[in-house]
């Protein structure tokens, strides 16, 4: 066990955990930020996607010791009132079915749109390929990203 200081959603937290503890479990177990989901543990499904310095990363595979001074953002911190254009577009298109993967989808989409504000259909689906939706909401995800892009650009 060791003490780590990590910055999540603009706030610095002290946690006392093993140095190899993935950020996913620090968020969920220690900081009680459970919006970030556990899906596979091997960075294959995208359910645990968060932002590290604005980049979409898989929190299940990022050990807490590697975070250092990265600024982490989780679904809880994506916007103050749940009104990020991607979140709003998700509501407008009624995307979720079971909803479990959607925090990861949203975090991935939000980071993607920051880098490409006017993506083509193909760019969207390629960018979202790392995020599995077992319910099959892909068409709505892509429509929502289009809507969000039009509002963000």
């Amino acid at each position: 066990m060791a003490a780590f200081s990590i910055k999540v959603n603009g706030k610095t937290h002290q946690v006392d955990v093993d140095s190899d503890t993935p950020v996913l479990w620090v968020l969920r177990d220690h900081l009680k930020l459970v919006g970030t989901k556990f899906g596979c543990g091997i960075a294959s499904c995208g359910a645990c996607t968060i932002h590290a310095d604005g980049n979409a990363i898989r929190s299940c595979s990022l050990p807490v010791s590697a975070v250092k001074d990265m600024e982490l953002t989780t679904i809880e911190g994506l916007s103050k009132d749940g009104d990020h254009p991607v979140q709003e577009a998700w509501l407008e298109h009624d995307v979720p079915q079971c909803g479990y993967c959607q925090a990861g989808q949203i975090m991935n989409a939000a980071a993607f749109l920051e880098k490409n504000s006017n993506p083509s259909d193909e760019e969207i689906s390629q960018a979202m390929n790392g995020n599995i939706c077992r319910c099959g909401t892909y068409i709505r995800i892509n429509q929502a990203i289009k809507t969000a892009a039009s509002k963000m650009s």
Binding site: I75, G82, Q102
Partner: peptide
């Protein structure tokens, strides 16, 4: 539940 889902 959509709002709760998209805000985690």
């Amino acid at each position: 539940d959509a709002k709760k889902i998209v805000t985690g």
